[in-house]
Design a protein around this nucleic acid. Structure first.
Lengths: 336, 336
DNA sequence: TATATTTCATATAACGTTTCATGAAATTTT
DNA sequence: AAAATTTCATGAAACGTTATATGAAATATA
């Protein structure tokens, strides 16, 4: 007799169907069972509305089908999208995400890694900022945008190519004197290569360029001063600006407006990330788009792949340029 | 002897410390144990780096410390923030979130509810759009922004007061002829009250108002036509617009620009939600701010509260107005 | 000192699965 | 038709916890 007031178990199903416990387990897991048995079990499952207890499964299999995802927050557009696609990729494989928001806090990152291990997650995907993060050997870990040593694979956009592409596009669109703006803080490792790529692109296309890179403590006002100091009369000496993220570009666009500069007529702006707001089809600015769905798929793939002979230390995925209203598109080849 | 290659268990700790299994359990759970025993166990835990298996705990307690969160996606700003705060409130109580993105899809909502039950979550918090969603009686459920019957509590902003506040603010800032714009689709139930509140506010403050409400199939272009048709010469007949969400306001601002209307000089705009981009301190537009941290806390509170005699059918939380550059603030009282 | 009481570590039985050795029934072979 | 083989449902053990009954040691009472 089934206990009152509690979810039915395999035992209840077995009793109802008049078969053994193991037979129910086989049916539930799609293992071969005689047809007459299968039907009786399936009927009993329906009748009792039985649902497997995945925690008992997890205990037995020593597997939780849960992956911890470490991310500063889910509010900034880039993080929000990444969260969405990582979750999608996990769900597709019957895994689920344990969301761990670290708020850029180094201690929280470490706490969450430890907690993730306590909860016996099957692995961790992390976009972290703590260079000294300690990850147990036995916990599979995939890093995003940050190399964490030879044993931990890292997935990132091709940041170097992205920087280069930004320079090339600005050159294509007629720029001669360009600037690279970067906020230092939360951007180390892979995204750093945007700078090197941009420099490389400027050199190969003969662009004059200047860089303004803020350090951790610096305030945004330094950008305003930097831009103001490059105005003679009413004219800004730059005709193109590459911002290290769309978020920065969004702020710079406001600043340019307050400085009386028209975008894109006076100065063109390219950002990085591929941000759109409110499910809008338009980008926030002309931008180098990161392939988030592919990044997410790759992270999950690398994490869950069982027998990978040698995990690649770094996977670079291709970026692309997209128009977003802040550049002077050359209309060659389209429209006419 | 401990098995190779697998995480240590309480048994291993007990052997190491030379005590019984139950004693280890007590130490782990902070139950009274003699000091000499406690010390030996604590040392063994440290030595073996033991970590409790929460899935075994869950199996035993028939409790998972997991809550499913149903949300269309985590990309749109409002959803992203809500996800952040709900997760925060859950983590604070040692719970974790199972993130379920439904993409506004009615079938997915139902699938996730069923799946959530399979995974034996302790409850569900849901921002859903399917009026026929079937939720098992025994699964605690808290709805956001949508009443789902008398047995399921609903948490929402005070949408009526918000609409009213928008009208009052527009009146305060000198508007005479205002419009209410709404996209029909994904906005039923609670957020509907924004319209009624706005009407009420307009009436009590003597504002002329018009409404343009799109239905599910309608395209955004209808708003453009609506606004165009209210322009005589170069002058828009509205001097204030209340948009049902910041997302709509964001689009309308672009449209107004393309129609040659200056915001806020020619026409003032107020949105709803309190959206900020990129962790920026500025709001996207002047807006009625939803109290997301409080909404999240309330949802989690209601969900996890064990012995609530009668769950309230609807909890309304107060909204506030915030300046975001698209209104003509009356500077009374500040600055001078 | 002998008995009654308290204290507290121990050992065991669950929780709901999966897996594997067991053996009965059905089939094939001689 | 008897023996050898295959098929396949069965039932018990195990996964890592928690909770409860047990009884030995220590303390308090007479």
């Amino acid at each position: 007799m089934k206990k009152e007031n509690s979810a039915p178990t395999m035992k209840d199903v077995a009793y109802e169907a008049g078969v053994a416990l193991g037979t129910v387990s086989k049916v539930v897991n799609g293992l071969p069972v005689g047809d007459s048995y299968r039907i009786r079990v399936e009927d009993a499952i329906k009748k009792l509305n039985y649902q497997v207890n995945s925690y008992a499964q997890g205990l037995k299999a020593n597997k939780t089908y849960t992956v911890a995802f470490l991310i500063p927050n889910t509010q900034e557009s880039f993080f929000a999208s990444l969260t969405y696609y990582i979750n999608l990729a996990l769900v597709k494989r019957k895994y689920r995400m344990l969301l761990c928001c670290t708020d850029f806090d180094l201690n929280q990152e470490q706490e969450y890694v430890t907690m993730a291990q306590q909860n016996k997650v099957d692995g961790i995907i992390g976009l972290t900022y703590n260079p000294n993060l300690v990850v147990e050997e036995n916990t599979p870990f995939v890093a995003i945008d940050r190399s964490m040593g030879p044993k931990i694979p890292c997935v990132a956009s091709d940041n170097f190519a992205g920087g280069q592409l930004a320079a090339e596009k600005l050159a294509d669109f007629g720029c001669k004197n360009v600037a690279f703006l970067r906020i230092g803080s939360s951007l180390s490792n892979e995204p750093n290569k945007r700078k090197a790529g941009f420099e490389n692109g400027c050199l190969s296309r003969g662009l004059n360029y200047e860089m303004k890179i803020l350090n951790d403590g610096d305030s945004y006002e330094e950008f305003e001063e930097f831009l103001s100091s490059h105005i003679s009369g009413t004219k800004l000496s730059f005709d193109g600006i590459f911002c290290v993220t769309d978020g920065l570009a969004y702020s710079i666009l406001k600043t340019l407006k307050s400085l009386g500069q028209k975008v894109p007529e006076d100065v063109q702006v390219i950002g990085f990330d591929g941000t759109r707001f409110f499910g809008n089809k338009d980008y926030v600015c002309s931008t180098i788009v990161q392939p988030l769905p592919e990044i997410a798929e790759m992270c999950v793939e690398l994490l869950l792949q069982e027998n990978m002979p040698s995990k690649p230390p770094l996977v670079c995925l291709p970026v692309s340029y997209c128009y977003g209203g802040t550049t002077l598109e050359v209309l060659s080849g389209r429209g006419k």
